[in-house]
């Protein structure tokens, strides 16, 4: 079962940062791991991942280095300390949201 675009949109940054917290990754690798770990629930439109990564890079939440792999240039992303802090805040925000939502749903 897929989730709606709106729900996914609000949690994309958290998903990307949590993946990068596990290990540095390049874009394609990140998409595949996310798809695998979520059993296909979080299947992003692949092209839109890169603007998100670039935005995170501009904000200083991730850094990237270029290397050569399989005869091509490859950009690998690393989470920064600022990114870890952002992830922590987003995670706490999500937990609060989850608890509050469960409370409401439970009451109905």
């Amino acid at each position: 079962m897929k989730v709606s675009k709106e729900m996914l949109k609000g949690s994309t940054v958290m998903l990307v940062l949590s993946m990068l917290e596990q290990q540095p990754m390049y874009g394609y690798q990140l998409i595949k791991r996310l798809d695998a770990q979520s059993n296909g629930v979080f299947a992003l439109k692949e092209g839109t991942l890169y603007p998100i990564l670039h935005a995170l890079e501009n904000e200083g939440h991730v850094e990237a280095i270029w290397s050569e792999a399989e005869g091509r240039a490859r950009k690998t992303y690393y989470i920064t300390d600022k990114g870890k802090k952002q992830l922590q805040e987003k995670t706490e925000e999500w937990k609060l949201f989850q608890v509050s939502l469960n409370r409401v749903i439970g009451e109905t």
Binding site: Y26, Y28, I31, E46, G47, Y50, W66, R72, R74, K75
Partner: peptide, 26 residues
């Protein structure tokens, strides 16, 4: 086509390289 739609001209080469890496992996 993606590259042509990007206004920041100096970013085009690096964006192109990143998208090509992704596409060829796929």
């Amino acid at each position: 086509q993606v590259e042509a739609g990007i206004h920041a001209q100096e970013m085009r080469a690096s964006i192109r390289a990143e998208l090509e890496d992704h596409l060829y992996n796929q």
